[in-house]
Protein backbone atom coordinates (compact mmCIF):
# COMPACT_ATOMS: atom_id res chain seq x y z
CA UNK A 1 0.00 0.00 0.00
CA UNK A 2 1.68 3.13 -1.18
CA UNK A 3 0.84 6.51 -2.48
CA UNK A 4 2.16 8.22 -5.57
CA UNK A 5 1.46 11.86 -6.36
CA UNK A 6 1.67 13.91 -9.51
CA UNK A 7 1.47 17.69 -9.61
CA UNK A 8 0.25 19.85 -12.46
CA UNK A 9 0.27 23.62 -12.13
CA UNK A 10 -1.46 26.22 -14.26
CA UNK A 11 0.21 29.54 -13.50
CA UNK A 12 -2.17 31.48 -15.72
CA UNK A 13 -5.15 30.38 -13.74
CA UNK A 14 -3.18 30.03 -10.51
CA UNK A 15 -4.25 26.42 -10.15
CA UNK A 16 -2.30 23.46 -8.72
CA UNK A 17 -3.64 20.02 -9.38
CA UNK A 18 -2.26 17.20 -7.23
CA UNK A 19 -3.07 13.67 -8.35
CA UNK A 20 -3.25 11.06 -5.59
CA UNK A 21 -2.55 7.52 -6.82
CA UNK A 22 -2.81 4.58 -4.40
CA UNK A 23 -3.72 4.63 -0.75
CA UNK A 24 -3.68 7.49 1.69
CA UNK A 25 -3.44 5.84 5.07
CA UNK A 26 -1.44 6.16 8.27
CA UNK A 27 1.67 4.85 6.49
CA UNK A 28 1.56 7.23 3.57
CA UNK A 29 0.00 10.23 5.32
CA UNK A 30 3.18 11.74 6.77
CA UNK A 31 4.91 11.89 3.38
CA UNK A 32 1.79 13.19 1.75
CA UNK A 33 1.56 15.91 4.35
CA UNK A 34 5.01 17.21 3.33
CA UNK A 35 4.11 17.10 -0.34
CA UNK A 36 0.87 18.91 0.21
CA UNK A 37 2.54 21.60 2.28
CA UNK A 38 5.03 22.05 -0.56
CA UNK A 39 2.18 22.49 -3.00
CA UNK A 40 0.41 25.05 -0.84
CA UNK A 41 3.69 26.89 -0.36
CA UNK A 42 3.68 27.71 -4.07
CA UNK A 43 1.00 30.21 -3.23
CA UNK A 44 -1.38 29.30 -6.01
CA UNK A 45 -4.99 30.30 -5.39
CA UNK A 46 -6.72 27.03 -6.08
CA UNK A 47 -5.28 23.67 -5.01
CA UNK A 48 -7.19 20.65 -6.19
CA UNK A 49 -6.63 17.14 -4.83
CA UNK A 50 -7.48 14.86 -7.70
CA UNK A 51 -8.65 11.56 -6.25
CA UNK A 52 -9.58 9.70 -9.39
CA UNK A 53 -6.85 7.15 -8.74
CA UNK A 54 -7.05 7.15 -4.96
CA UNK A 55 -8.22 3.72 -3.85
CA UNK A 56 -8.27 4.17 -0.17
CA UNK A 57 -8.27 6.84 2.49
CA UNK A 58 -8.14 6.49 6.23
CA UNK A 59 -8.66 8.93 9.05
CA UNK A 60 -4.95 9.64 9.08
CA UNK A 61 -5.21 10.83 5.47
CA UNK A 62 -8.25 12.92 6.24
CA UNK A 63 -6.42 14.47 9.14
CA UNK A 64 -3.72 15.70 6.74
CA UNK A 65 -6.37 17.13 4.41
CA UNK A 66 -8.12 18.85 7.32
CA UNK A 67 -4.88 20.39 8.42
CA UNK A 68 -4.00 21.57 4.88
CA UNK A 69 -7.48 23.01 4.40
CA UNK A 70 -7.06 25.13 7.52
CA UNK A 71 -3.67 26.37 6.33
CA UNK A 72 -5.06 27.19 2.89
CA UNK A 73 -7.97 29.17 4.33
CA UNK A 74 -5.62 31.15 6.52
CA UNK A 75 -3.46 31.94 3.48
CA UNK A 76 -6.50 32.90 1.37
CA UNK A 77 -5.99 29.87 -0.76
CA UNK A 78 -8.48 27.21 -1.55
CA UNK A 79 -8.23 23.45 -1.19
CA UNK A 80 -10.62 21.40 -3.20
CA UNK A 81 -11.16 17.72 -3.96
CA UNK A 82 -12.25 16.16 -7.17
CA UNK A 83 -13.12 12.81 -8.67
CA UNK A 84 -13.77 10.99 -5.37
CA UNK A 85 -14.63 7.32 -5.78
CA UNK A 86 -17.84 6.24 -4.03
CA UNK A 87 -16.19 4.63 -1.07
CA UNK A 88 -13.87 7.61 -0.63
CA UNK A 89 -16.85 9.84 -0.83
CA UNK A 90 -18.55 7.66 1.80
CA UNK A 91 -15.70 8.20 4.19
CA UNK A 92 -15.96 11.93 3.66
CA UNK A 93 -19.66 11.71 4.25
CA UNK A 94 -19.40 9.63 7.37
CA UNK A 95 -17.04 12.11 8.83
CA UNK A 96 -19.11 15.01 7.51
CA UNK A 97 -15.78 16.25 6.41
CA UNK A 98 -15.47 19.91 5.57
CA UNK A 99 -18.91 20.82 4.28
CA UNK A 100 -17.55 24.06 2.92
CA UNK A 101 -14.79 22.42 0.97
CA UNK A 102 -15.24 22.54 -2.77
CA UNK A 103 -15.73 19.12 -4.22
CA UNK A 104 -15.97 18.34 -7.91
CA UNK A 105 -17.31 15.16 -9.27
CA UNK A 106 -15.74 15.56 -12.70
CA UNK A 107 -13.57 17.76 -14.90
CA UNK A 108 -16.51 19.77 -16.17
CA UNK A 109 -17.49 20.90 -12.70
CA UNK A 110 -13.91 21.75 -12.00
CA UNK A 111 -13.45 23.75 -15.17
CA UNK A 112 -16.65 25.67 -14.52
CA UNK A 113 -15.49 26.44 -11.05
CA UNK A 114 -12.09 27.58 -12.23
CA UNK A 115 -13.59 29.79 -14.90
CA UNK A 116 -15.91 31.29 -12.34
CA UNK A 117 -13.01 31.92 -10.01
CA UNK A 118 -11.02 33.60 -12.75
CA UNK A 119 -13.95 35.76 -13.79
CA UNK A 120 -14.45 36.80 -10.17
CA UNK A 121 -10.84 37.74 -9.73
CA UNK A 122 -10.92 39.71 -12.95
CA UNK A 123 -13.95 41.50 -11.74
CA UNK A 124 -12.36 41.96 -8.38
Amino acid sequence: MKLDTKLETDGDRSVARLYLIGALNSDTAPEFETILEGVLAKGLKVNVLDMRDLDYISSAGLRVIFKAAKQATAAHQRLAASHRKPHIEKVFEILKALPDMAVFANDQELDDYLDAMQARSLEG
Partner: peptide, 24 residues
Protein backbone atom coordinates in the same frame (compact mmCIF):
# COMPACT_ATOMS: atom_id res chain seq x y z
CA UNK B 1 -13.89 12.06 18.93
CA UNK B 2 -13.79 15.04 16.65
CA UNK B 3 -17.07 16.92 16.31
CA UNK B 4 -18.27 16.24 12.87
CA UNK B 5 -19.72 18.67 10.40
CA UNK B 6 -17.67 21.70 11.34
CA UNK B 7 -16.49 23.97 8.56
CA UNK B 8 -12.88 24.41 7.75
CA UNK B 9 -12.31 27.14 10.22
CA UNK B 10 -13.72 25.07 13.07
CA UNK B 11 -12.84 21.53 12.05
CA UNK B 12 -10.64 19.52 14.42
CA UNK B 13 -7.58 17.80 13.17
CA UNK B 14 -7.68 14.12 14.25
CA UNK B 15 -10.24 12.17 16.29
CA UNK B 16 -11.80 10.80 13.15
CA UNK B 17 -10.87 7.10 13.41
CA UNK B 18 -13.51 6.05 15.95
CA UNK B 19 -16.23 7.62 13.78
CA UNK B 20 -15.10 5.49 10.88
CA UNK B 21 -15.00 2.35 13.05
CA UNK B 22 -18.51 2.90 14.29
CA UNK B 23 -19.97 3.93 10.97
CA UNK B 24 -18.44 1.15 8.93
Amino acid sequence: RAELGADIAHAEIGGLGVHLIEQL
